Amino acid sequence: MKQGDIIIYACVIIGAGIGLILNYVFPGVLIGLGIGYLIKSLFKKED
């Protein structure tokens, strides 16, 4: 498993947890997914 994938999965799980607290699970997952992709793109090595 690549490091970028782990970052995305972690953000999705954190987003789902926050969504459970606020009773909006699916939007929390989607926001976590978006944040995960943004963080992954920040840590992406340049060729």
Rank of each mutant, 00 (worst) to 15 (best):
Y9H: 09
G34S: 03
Y37M: 03
G17C: 14
M1Y: 08
A16E: 08
I21E: 15
M1N: 13
N23D: 15
I7G: 03
I14G: 06
G34P: 04
G32I: 01
L20I: 15
Y24R: 14
D5L: 12
Y9F: 14
K40R: 07
L22S: 14
F43Q: 13
L38T: 09
L42D: 13
L42A: 13
F26R: 13
I8E: 02
G4D: 14
L30P: 05
L20R: 13
G17R: 03
P27E: 14
K40M: 07
I18A: 04
K44E: 01
I14C: 13
I13H: 08
C11I: 06
I14E: 05
G28P: 09
G36V: 00
S41I: 04
D47A: 10
L20E: 15
K45S: 07
K40A: 04
D47M: 06
I14R: 06
C11M: 07
L22N: 12
I7K: 02
I6G: 12
D5T: 11
G19V: 06
N23H: 12
G28Q: 02
M1P: 11
L20K: 11
Q3W: 12
I6L: 15
L30S: 10
G15E: 06
G36A: 00
Y37K: 09
K40Q: 11
I14D: 02
V12R: 05
A10K: 05
I13S: 08
I18H: 08
Y9W: 14
L20Y: 15
G19S: 08
G28H: 10
L22V: 13
K40F: 03
C11P: 07
Q3D: 15
C11R: 00
L20A: 15
C11Q: 04
L42Y: 09
C11K: 04
D5N: 14
G28T: 05
G4I: 01
Q3T: 08
L33M: 03
Y24D: 15
G34A: 05
